[in-house]
Design a protein around this nucleic acid. Structure first.
Lengths: 151, 151
DNA sequence: GTACAATAGCTAACAGTTCGCATTACTGAT
DNA sequence: ATCAGTAATGCGAACTGTTAGCTATTGTAC
């Protein structure tokens, strides 16, 4: 949420064109701690740009991801969620309401796991993805899950 | 493979009805090492039951999953894959062709990670999901990825 | 200011999955 | 062995999340 000012120039460097829509999509995503889906983000962005279309939000999210300003969190439970924090960090997903949030965990992602995996197979191991699952504070009270976690 | 004979009775215990379709869906999935998608499994099952519909395959996969005979591998890269091995074990997904296979890794899934996560949040942590990503032997040669792995 | 290409907005298409409904066929009881 | 009752089938249509095609705009470089 602080680096938004230089985004214009930086995005230019990468060949992007900083339209009003793209700027607002990124600013909005960067300004919230939550990790909204494309539809949720569309709704938020609409408050500043009422005419923006959902396709534009999708397109910009994809482009911004390619440019490295956004990461997509897609673990299969319904829609993808998006995150403007691109440094690697952990996420939790609520099994009941689907919400995704950051998890501040000082356990470092361990490359030795990848090495162990590499030693065990003839595939080329590029890495691994981790997602924590559970119940968010709001859903802890209620008790009527619609599970989707596996793995 | 081996446990298919008792499936009839066991499934009954859980309230399921062992139709020809359900039996063949499960037998077919259990007889392969691969982890096919619903569509792929449908195609396989058709060789024994030409008239079976895709909806029936989906329905049975869901039901069998509820009954604990099948696990769904859904990490968001296109379609879900299904696995008749329900004991926890690791999987790799090919970033290029999407194939999913087992990964025999003797690193135990570590509950202490969940405990660390639990200590760091007010969510209720139920566990975590891990998926390795990389290139399968067949795709290693070619070099024209269509990436989808993240976080 | 002007030109040009990247992008917006719109709608239709698409993939994966689920649902509704009439028909079939397991299963437990007779 | 038959029968009743209900879960499951097959089919197609609906639904969700996402992408693509097209024309009109509009950033950006000159």
């Amino acid at each position: 949420m602080s680096n938004c000012e230089d985004l214009r120039d930086t995005v230019h460097e990468h060949g992007g064109r900083m339209t009003r829509q793209r700027r607002v999509v990124l600013e909005t995503l960067a300004s919230v701690d939550a990790h909204p889906t494309a539809a949720e983000l569309h709704e938020m962005v609409r408050q500043r740009l009422p005419g923006i279309s959902q396709g534009t939000v999708y397109r910009n999210l994809r482009r911004l991801q390619e440019l490295g300003y956004v990461q997509e969190l897609d673990y299969g439970a319904g829609a993808s969620h998006f995150d403007a924090r691109v440094e690697p960090h952990y996420h939790v997903r609520c099994l009941r309401c689907g919400r995704v949030e950051d998890l501040e965990l000082d356990v470092e992602p361990r490359p030795d796991v990848d090495q162990a995996a590499q030693a065990a197979t003839d595939w080329q191991i590029d890495g691994h993805r981790v997602e924590f699952v559970g119940l968010c504070p709001e859903c802890r009270g209620t008790d009527e899950r619609e599970d989707r976690g596996g793995g």
